[in-house]
Design a protein around this nucleic acid. Structure first.
Length: 575
RNA sequence: CGGGGUAUAGCGCAGUCUGGUAGCGCGUCUGGUUUGGGACCAGGAUGUCGGGAGUUCGAAUCUCUCUACCCCGACCA
């Protein structure tokens, strides 16, 4: 592609509303342009990279035996009513009415549509297993779109759905998809980890996320330092402390703590570490049908955080998690800011670590007062012990091997064993060997294709711009002529090199802007847009019979003989 | 949804406090000089100052109102 024929506008200054590097660079390098909050146009150069990702995904999915389909983005409400998600999905589901006043939604995901397809197209066990996927635009009306295409409302997703006659078959396909995802992200040159994950609103039993490691990520990923244990912090189990709880050594006594409500204040005021203070969290309750019920109290060690996923899974707790109001706390016999276990009339759950505390400080359920020297069982009934907290760095690994470390990750893929959640609700069955109807067992597998582009930039950039891996680069090679349109020799040599590389199938971006555009501008643009391999054609080189090669990633230069440059570049583009 | 902030040329911003008819840098267009790291000179174009209403002789500036966008907290590819 010649620069003079390509619509590319780069920016020297960073647009004011971008905060993460990938967003800044995508804007500056002209890959995307914003239309509205969470809505972006992919410009020609950005789309080239997006299509590269799609191609890799498509190849690996096909290789793993999946078949591509394309389902409508607009979906009828009836299907969503069948699974109950028309009401459950919430504000993220963009609902629209057609001219006949019928309800539709813009698909945030396609379980309903694919299950409907399955129940009409799949009739016999002989058709199983089958795995169908599509690469398509999804819409989720995010409460807070952010970070450009990283968390956009409209985005490109590869979603696949598999159907099975038994669990073993599902496991097999699940493993195949796990491997396919590893292949995809390896080919794309990403530093990623598959981690165990919570299934969230999609539902199902088992699931893994594929997380690209980056400090700007929105997820906390937990690793063992001496095994391959890896999990999203949502799911990572915090083991009970070893040994027995220390015996009480102090007497229970009440102290005035007039201005100390937070754990930090109390700890500072009483000159004890936060780990010696009992943290109380009161949340709204719900019964099995989701109806409002009495609040529930969680106790944690003061230096620990409540894990919201674990909290929501606790019996009797309202989902989504909501904190109780001051009035609700008073009704339990507590005082907001001074809640403790003493005389509390509520269902109480105690985190494993908190249950191991002795001689602790806790709220006195009186305004301006805490208790010191508190001990479970001697002073307070111990509630039900559960794992409630987020693990912290240094905790023992749940698999018993080593200790845990935490890193930030960007979720680019997620695979689920759905089971029969959707097929049962939508009566998707096939006839088995005995001619009996059998409910289909399902798996589903997503990749955020547009997010992958942003995640790759998070991992591959420097102060000058993007550094594309070959697999995602919009162009492999950039040609910068020194004095194009001025030096006849350079003009001819550059044109000839461009023609030669193009004919050899190399994707090349030829900066043929004339003498008005200074070399510095061309170098800066070439670096900003991240072309991995650059060659400079100059009078100097023509005299010496060479062209100058520079690798974008490490800046290493080489003078390559003119007649060798094609094979030289072909080798570079391969790896 | 709650809390905070912003809106002036394609982009980044000043001007708003203290009303007087809009400016800077980048980009862009024309001509010329430059040419291995974001050149220089000269000349030009571009704004319903987010929308609406009000106060005033006069509003980018003051008041009210609506809207959009951004940031911090509960969700997800």
């Amino acid at each position: 592609m010649r620069a003079t024929e390509f619509l590319l506008t780069t920016e020297k200054e960073t647009p004011a509303d971008a905060v993460v590097v990938s967003h800044k660079l995508m804007l500056r390098a002209g890959l995307i342009r914003k239309l509205a909050a969470g809505l972006y146009t992919w410009m020609p150069i950005g789309l080239l990279s997006l299509r590269k990702v799609e191609a890799v995904v498509r190849e690996e999915m096909n290789k793993a035996g999946a078949q591509e389909v394309l389902m409508p983005a607009v979906q009828p409400a009836e299907l969503w009513e069948e699974t109950g998600r028309w009401f459950k999905y919430g504000g993220e589901l963009l609902r629209v009415k057609d001219r006949h006043n019928r309800d539709f939604c813009i698909g945030p995901t396609h379980e309903e549509v694919i299950t409907d397809l399955a129940r009409t197209q799949l009739t016999s066990y002989k058709q199983l297993p089958v795995n169908l996927y599509q690469i398509q635009t999804k819409f989720r009306d995010e409460t807070r779109p952010r970070f450009g295409v990283m968390r956009a409302r409209e985005f490109i997703m590869k979603d696949a759905y598999s159907f099975h006659g038994n669990q073993e078959s599902l496991e097999e396909t699940y493993q195949k998809m796990h491997q396919a995802y590893c292949n995809i992200f390896n080919r794309l040159g990403l530093d990623f980890r598959p981690v165990m994950a919570d299934t969230g609103s999609i539902g199902g039993a088992k699931s893994h996320e594929f997380q690209v490691l980056a400090n700007s990520g929105e997820d906390d990923i937990v690793f063992s330092n001496s095994s391959d244990y890896a999990a999203n912090i949502e799911l990572a189990e915090a083991l009970a402390p070893a040994g027995a709880r220390p015996a009480p050594a102090q007497a229970l006594s009440k102290v005035a703590t007039p201005n100390a409500q937070s754990i930090e204040d109390v700890a500072a005021f009483l000159k004890v570490p936060a780990s010696q203070v009992l943290k109380a969290i009161v949340v709204r309750g719900a019964d099995d049908e989701g109806k409002s019920a009495a609040p529930v109290v969680f106790f944690l060690r003061g230096d620990h955080e409540l894990n919201e996923v674990k909290a929501e899974k606790t019996p009797g707790v309202a989902s989504p998690l909501q904190f109780a109001s001051e009035e609700e706390i008073i009704a339990l016999g507590g005082v907001a800011g001074f809640v403790g276990p003493k005389g509390l009339k509520a269902k109480v759950y105690v985190d494993r670590a908190a249950a191991h505390m002795a001689d602790f400080v806790c709220g006195a359920n009186e305004k301006g007062a805490h208790l010191t020297g508190g001990n479970w069982e001697r002073d307070f009934a111990l509630g039900e012990i559960r794992d409630l907290r987020n693990v912290v760095v240094g905790d023992p690994s749940p698999d018993g091997k080593g200790t845990l470390d935490i890193k930030r990750g960007i979720e680019v893929g997620h695979i689920f064993q759905l089971g029969t959640k959707y097929s049962e609700a939508m009566k998707a069955t096939v006839l088995d060997e005995n001619g009996k109807a059998k409910t289909l067992i399902m798996g589903c597998y997503g990749i955020g294709v547009s997010r992958v582009v942003a995640a790759a930039i998070e991992q591959n950039h420097d102060d000058n711009g993007i550094i594309w891996p070959n697999s995602m680069a919009p162009f492999h090679v950039g040609i910068v002529p020194m004095g194009y349109g001025k030096s006849e020799a350079v003009t001819q040599a550059a044109d000839a090199l461009y023609a030669e590389l193009k004919a050899a199938g190399i994707e090349v971006y030829f900066d043929d802007r004339d003498k008005k555009t200074s070399p510095g501008v061309k170098f800066a643009d070439m670096e900003l847009i991240g072309i991995p391999h650059r060659v400079v054609v100059s009078d100097r080189g023509i005299e010496a019979g060479t062209v100058e090669y520079t690798a974008r990633r490490d800046g290493v230069k080489a003078e390559v003989a003119r007649q060798d440059i094609l094979s030289f570049l072909q080798a570079k583009v391969q790896c």
